[in-house]
Design a protein around this nucleic acid. Structure first.
Lengths: 107, 107
DNA sequence: TGGCTATTTGGCCATAATGCCAAGTAGCCA
DNA sequence: TGGCTACTTGGCATTATGGCCAAATAGCCA
């Protein structure tokens, strides 16, 4: 595997890794609707604030979200608009799995 | 967070997690071109066969690839055709990062 | 300034992921 | 059958992740 390709794959993997957590997916879905402060997301998810803050840091690190401090709140929003279409593919994996599963049941 | 939504997010996260590794991304890209046996992928990636086999098992577990034993070789191929468009979005995250980076440099 | 709220960071523990080697399984072919 | 190749699985060490609590930081407002 050439080094350049390897670097590229690592960069992609990093982004996918950042998305690969239920709470972070939830955050991304919420941010598709509107920007949110950490406190909103914390309430919605129901984990410790520090946990949510760390999730947001992972998403920010990966370039998926950006933050904006206003007063003593920090608002987060998506940096890129395409995450939705992105998920379309994951859905089709899930549907395929469902089909497979029901095919097994109906045998 | 409702239980149903939580389950759905967990299912999505599982798929993303399966993709979130350089070698597994490489495998998916190779399988976009054509089916491959484990030995081909092992040569291309240059890790231990057992490592590749485990990566393939992760992808299979996630419903991304399927296998087909022919003779004493096992051929893998993609189960879903959309992975490419999927990556388009990751690319735009990467491009955005690059823009950001060069903006910082040129300041 | 002091107290309050919002957020981040450090520390710690439990659990999961990665990768190698070694051992096991399965199919071919002489 | 025996030996070879292809692959998978178990075991183990190392490292990364996820979550909480506690402490630190930052901005408001009285």
């Amino acid at each position: 595997m050439y080094q350049q390709r390897k670097n590229h794959l690592e960069a992609r993997a990093k982004i996918l890794k950042a998305l690969a957590h239920p709470s972070r997916l939830f955050i991304v879905e919420e941010l598709e609707k509107a920007e949110r402060c950490v406190c909103d997301l914390t309430d919605l998810i129901g984990a410790d604030v520090s946990t949510i803050s760390k999730h947001l840091s992972v998403l920010k690190q990966a370039g998926i979200v950006m933050d904006d401090k206003r007063g003593n709140q920090v608002f987060y929003r998506l940096r890129v608009p395409c995450i939705l279409t992105f998920f379309g593919c994951i859905e089709s994996v899930l549907e395929e799995q469902a089909r497979e599963h029901s095919a097994l049941l109906n045998r």
